[in-house]
């Protein structure tokens, strides 16, 4: 891979598709060929706390509204967040990847979050798979916010030899206690992202949003980390902005030669252990045990 990545840290207007599309297009057009891929935050096209607006802003992936993005994706790959209406009519919190004038891949948020101030389980259907997006610029593992807080997504992409995790987020800014420094939520994210770099020997791009929705602030802190967890580019503070970084395979190769964690991974051990936790697998295990006797 050799990818000139741009991460856009935006402040989407809640429920205002036109304004948000305009903002996306401006940022895309401003790059004028100077990048290969632009990554936007979670629900970047719609805003986050939609509640009953979810159905109003949902659209299918062949909606003509998306045409300006498809056109631009001939020259720049685009990953953005939106409410996807599936052919069956389910509404997903999706990260959609446009390339070469078409939708190359879609990740539907698997780990919807429904605790604390979140209520996604009420508003969205949950995705059920993690699939690498094979782009002309690399193998990307898309994740949406809470997906990063559970192992299966990043781990699946690790098994599938993704070059980079693309993490789109709308993370609330929380935790102002001393001594800090900075927001506790941001420090936690940095630990989480860094640990993923180290455990999976991968590039990690994190697109987070800023702004306020009814008193809930979003913390920003977008960044690109290399497979050693060094920040190659980062946005601190509460303002919108963009950052760019070059993701190259030479760094990835060196990091993976130094620590061949993927080579030494034993997914079958996990599969066997999972048999104790997943009822269907447990039943199959028991059946096998009986047969063996």
């Amino acid at each position: 891979m050799d990818c000139r990545l741009v991460v856009a840290q935006t402040n989407p207007a809640l429920g205002d598709l036109r304004a948000n599309l305009e903002d996306h297009l401006q940022r895309i057009d401003a790059l004028a060929g100077a990048a290969d891929l632009i990554l936007f935050p979670e629900l970047s096209l719609t805003g986050y706390f939609l509640k009953d607006q979810v159905a109003d802003v949902a659209m299918s992936l062949d909606d003509t509204f998306l045409r300006p993005l498809l056109e631009r994706s001939r020259h720049l790959s685009i990953a953005l967040g939106m409410v996807e209406r599936s052919p069956e009519g389910r509404l997903f919190n999706s990260l959609v990847f446009f390339e070469d004038g078409r939708v190359l891949g879609v990740h539907r948020k698997v780990h919807l979050v429904s605790y604390g101030l979140f209520d996604e389980g009420r508003d969205f259907a949950a995705g059920e798979e993690f699939r690498v997006i094979q782009s002309r610029h690399g193998r990307f593992g898309p994740l949406i916010c809470e997906d990063m807080w559970h192992m299966p997504g990043a781990y699946t992409y690790f098994l599938d030899d993704a070059d980079a995790l693309l993490v789109a987020s709308a993370s609330p800014a929380r935790g102002v206690e001393a001594p800090g420094p900075g927001l506790a939520s941001q420090r936690t994210w940095n630990i989480l992202l860094s640990a993923s770099c180290l455990m999976y020997r991968t590039w990690v791009a994190y697109a987070s949003r800023v702004g306020w929705e009814d008193g809930i602030g979003f913390g920003g802190g977008s960044r690109v980390l290399d497979p050693y967890a060094n920040a190659r580019a980062a946005l601190e503070g509460l303002e919108p902005g963009t950052l760019s970084a070059r993701l190259d395979s030479a760094v990835l190769r060196r990091a993976r030669t130094e620590l061949p964690l993927r080579r030494d991974e034993k997914p079958w051990v996990l599969a066997a252990e999972l048999g104790r936790h997943v009822p269907l697998l447990r039943a199959l295990r028991a059946e096998h045990a009986l047969r063996d006797e």
Binding site: V176, A178, P181, G182, W212, G217
Partner: peptide, 14 residues
């Protein structure tokens, strides 16, 4: 205890 500068920055933005 809070970080007053951070809180002030957040509240001005809010």
């Amino acid at each position: 205890d809070i970080q007053p500068e951070l809180v002030s920055e957040l509240l001005v933005s809010f």
